[in-house]
């Protein structure tokens, strides 16, 4: 994984990886309406990171994706998730205090089969986004750390 791959692969990657990321963020944002959610969407975004690492090598990818920033995002996502769980403590831990309240994500859903409204779901939507951020950052950190380590070990063996 030390050298870059061929020009064909690099061109296709620059074309495709944006769409993969957008699809991942779509899955995260629509977790309360369509199949998928934070974990699945975060994995899709992290697969785009893995594609970048495979195509461009570890060094160039780390210029583009800061590992420290991803590490910070990971902790932030988990803290936001736990905060939303604690905010519901007026009733119970993990109480959905935002649903049907009329504020952010607070519209009530139409009962029955319908395409859905993005501004519904209460803490479900907020937690989806928090978990999505956490998962994409966590898997990104794993991909970057392991590729960097394998590169260093290869260099040492030579």
């Amino acid at each position: 994984m030390k050298e870059e791959m061929s020009r064909i692969v690099r061109t296709m990657t620059t074309l495709i990886y944006v769409f993969i990321m957008v699809y991942g963020f779509y899955v995260i944002a629509h977790g309360h309406l369509t199949p998928g959610g934070g974990f699945q969407g975060g994995s899709v975004v992290a697969s785009a990171f893995a594609l970048l690492v495979v195509t461009y090598g570890n060094q160039k990818t780390q210029d583009f994706l800061q590992k420290d920033l991803l590490s910070l995002l990971e902790s932030t996502g988990l803290v936001i998730f736990i905060c939303f769980a604690f905010f519901g403590l007026g009733a119970t831990f993990f109480y959905n205090f935002l649903s049907n309240s009329g504020s952010l994500f607070g519209s009530s859903a139409t009962i029955g089969v319908n395409p859905g409204n993005l501004n519904t779901g209460g803490t479900v939507t907020a937690m989806n986004i928090a978990v999505g951020i956490e998962v994409l950052a966590a898997l990104g950190v794993i991909v970057l750390t392991m590729s960097q380590a394998s590169e260093t070990i290869e260099k040492k063996e030579k």
Binding site: G31, H32, L33, T34, P35, G37, N96, S99, N100, F105, G106, S107, S108, A109, I111, G112, N114, G116, T120, G121, G122, V124, T125, N128
Partner: peptide, 12 residues
Amino acid sequence: QAETGANNVVTT
């Protein structure tokens, strides 16, 4: 659907 306001029951 009525309690959480979200359409995806699995996610709720």
